[in-house]
Computed example of a mutant assay.
Amino acid sequence: MQKISPFLWFDNNAEEAMNFYLSVFKNSKVIRVAYNSPGAPGPEGVLLVATIELEGQQITLMNGGPGHPLTDALSLMVNCVSQGEVDYYWDGLLAGGGKEIACGWLKDRFGLYWQVTPVMLPELLGGPDKAKAGRVMQAMMKMVKLDIGALKAAADAK
């Protein structure tokens, strides 16, 4: 068990969100689920809380009712090693009504924010060459979905 893991509050569609995330992430599984019992605050038999694992990261989802919507103050980052992975997760997480934001960020149909990010991006933005980092940042700021080839081209430009 992880010492620290995300806990996400949904109004009433945590089970739908859980099934969606399990379908997008190939390396995923259900860890445990609990459904409302008689006398619980929600409808009997409806998912109360579930813990799932997506690519090794445990996440707990709860149907808590209205009043605490997800915001962009919290996002989950998907680290991608190739443009194919960026494309796969970008398209998968947008499926069914998600919304593109900017700079590799998107909001899925449940209101959860994601960053679909190439693993090489921090390397391109860091290091001693400030001009290179600036070119990469300027290129990224013009993108919605991140393009690894264009980021590398910006890094290599003189």
Results as ranks from 00 to 15, higher is better:
56 G>I: 01
54 L>V: 08
29 K>R: 15
53 E>H: 05
32 R>Q: 12
158 K>V: 13
61 L>Q: 06
70 L>C: 10
14 A>R: 05
147 D>L: 01
7 F>W: 12
99 K>E: 15
33 V>S: 13
142 K>F: 03
4 I>R: 09
14 A>Y: 08
75 S>D: 01
94 L>G: 02
157 A>M: 08
19 N>I: 02
7 F>R: 07
29 K>E: 15
55 E>S: 15
119 V>G: 00
41 P>V: 09
153 A>K: 13
20 F>H: 11
125 L>S: 04
66 P>K: 14
20 F>E: 05
129 D>E: 00
118 P>E: 02
157 A>I: 04
92 G>C: 03
82 S>P: 01
13 N>W: 11
86 V>C: 09
49 V>P: 04
98 G>Y: 07
50 A>M: 02
77 M>G: 02
33 V>D: 10
102 A>N: 09
110 F>K: 01
122 P>H: 04
143 M>I: 06
132 K>Q: 12
149 G>N: 15
59 I>R: 02
154 A>D: 06
120 M>R: 11
91 D>I: 05
100 E>K: 10
96 G>I: 00
125 L>F: 06
141 M>T: 05
113 Y>F: 15
123 E>V: 13
66 P>T: 13
148 I>D: 00
143 M>H: 10
17 A>S: 09
72 D>M: 13
112 L>K: 05
118 P>D: 00
107 K>E: 14
98 G>D: 02
139 A>H: 04
19 N>G: 02
157 A>C: 07
73 A>G: 14
38 P>Q: 06
18 M>Y: 07
41 P>N: 11
3 K>Y: 12
142 K>Q: 15
99 K>A: 13
90 W>Q: 00
80 C>P: 01
78 V>I: 14
154 A>H: 07
27 N>I: 08
89 Y>K: 04
99 K>C: 09
106 L>W: 06
51 T>N: 11
137 M>H: 11
41 P>Q: 09
19 N>Q: 15
91 D>V: 03
112 L>M: 13
79 N>T: 12
87 D>G: 03
80 C>T: 03
155 A>M: 05
65 G>M: 03
36 N>R: 10
37 S>P: 10
7 F>Y: 15
108 D>C: 03
78 V>D: 03
141 M>A: 11
70 L>T: 12
148 I>Q: 04
119 V>A: 11
104 G>A: 03
53 E>S: 11
43 P>F: 10
89 Y>Q: 05
40 A>M: 10
27 N>F: 02
87 D>A: 09
32 R>M: 14
136 V>D: 03
33 V>L: 11
89 Y>A: 07
114 W>L: 01
17 A>V: 10
25 F>G: 06
9 W>H: 11
83 Q>V: 00
147 D>N: 13
57 Q>N: 11
57 Q>A: 14
96 G>W: 06
154 A>E: 09
5 S>Q: 13
28 S>P: 07
12 N>Y: 10
81 V>F: 12
121 L>M: 08
134 G>E: 09
17 A>H: 08
126 G>C: 02
153 A>H: 08
103 C>G: 02
140 M>L: 10
151 L>A: 02
